[in-house]
Design a protein around this nucleic acid. Structure first.
Lengths: 153, 153
DNA sequence: GCACATTCAATTGCGAACAATTAAATGTGA
DNA sequence: TCACATTTAATTGTTCGCAATTGAATGTGC
């Protein structure tokens, strides 16, 4: 028997999965961002780190990681690339030698001005009203936070 | 002047970004899936490929790529790992020698039964009603499709 | 039939992402 | 004080994800 598609298979159907919706939307965002961020010389994760630093500077790697849900295994090499691009400086804290503080260079600060056009371009690409996007964002954040709550038991 | 947070900066604020909501939710899903998929011996992208194959077998790499929005650079090594795990077979099509057809092995088919408990666990972790999840999924898919439409000019 | 373009998978190189481990600095309790 | 645990980044190794290129097979237009 050729295994006809059955109702019992619905939970395993790709297009029914919310995780795949989220996964594929994340990649779609990445592809839209790519040409915009190329002009800034940033990758998407690097852009996220810069967003954090543009809000507050001179913070330990740990803080950036907590904000972005990333660990040092991801951030250490990424921050070294930003340092090589002269956008940030990495210095050991003198109060606590375990911490490495990340500070923006003048170039890093200046890049913020060039980045201001990015959110507008993304808004246009999403072809969606701001209130709709805000509502979706809040729902997705709430879902993410519930998922993260499960991970910490 | 110490650059106080200003309303002009709102579009660049991390927590205002829907892309970051999606990006961080995708990673949260990945972390919830990890222990469940470890028991199947699969990574999350490998699980997605298996979902595609459990729906329809004996398809070219191209079809899997279109379904998952992934290219051969990602899929070729991933499929070789699934082959090494004896879950799929890779054979050149005889009608069109350019294509490589991916077929499930008996083990690959059998794994579907072990996978049936996964969606239920994810539903529980998301701590959300099915109608809510379905609504969110459809919104996210619609957004993804609009973003993908922009990429193809 | 033949030059040419197109399609498809594979390959190479780079940048995430994370698990697991390491090493150094700091904190804590007896 | 001193043994011990904790915190913090860095490191190593594996797997994605994609751009760019390659090479073989197929399709096409003349």
């Amino acid at each position: 028997m050729p295994r006809k598609s059955s109702a019992a298979d619905a939970p395993l159907r790709l297009d029914n999965q919310i995780c795949f919706a989220v996964y594929s939307a994340a990649h779609a965002f990445n592809r839209v961002y790519k040409p915009l961020l190329d002009r800034l010389g940033l990758t998407y994760p690097q852009y996220l780190v810069m967003l954090v630093l543009w809000e507050r500077d001179d913070v330990p790697v740990k803080d950036i990681g907590e904000r972005l849900f990333l660990d040092s295994g991801t951030l250490t090499p990424l921050l070294k690339r930003l340092e090589a691009a002269h956008l940030v400086r990495r210095t050991r804290s003198s109060e606590d030698e375990r911490q490495v503080l990340i500070a923006l260079t003048a170039q890093g600060h200046a890049l913020k001005e060039k980045a201001r056009s990015v959110p507008q371009s993304i808004l246009a690409a999403s072809d969606c009203s701001v209130p709709e996007l805000v509502a979706m964002r809040d729902e997705i954040v709430a879902l993410r936070d519930r998922l993260n709550a499960v991970i910490g038991e």
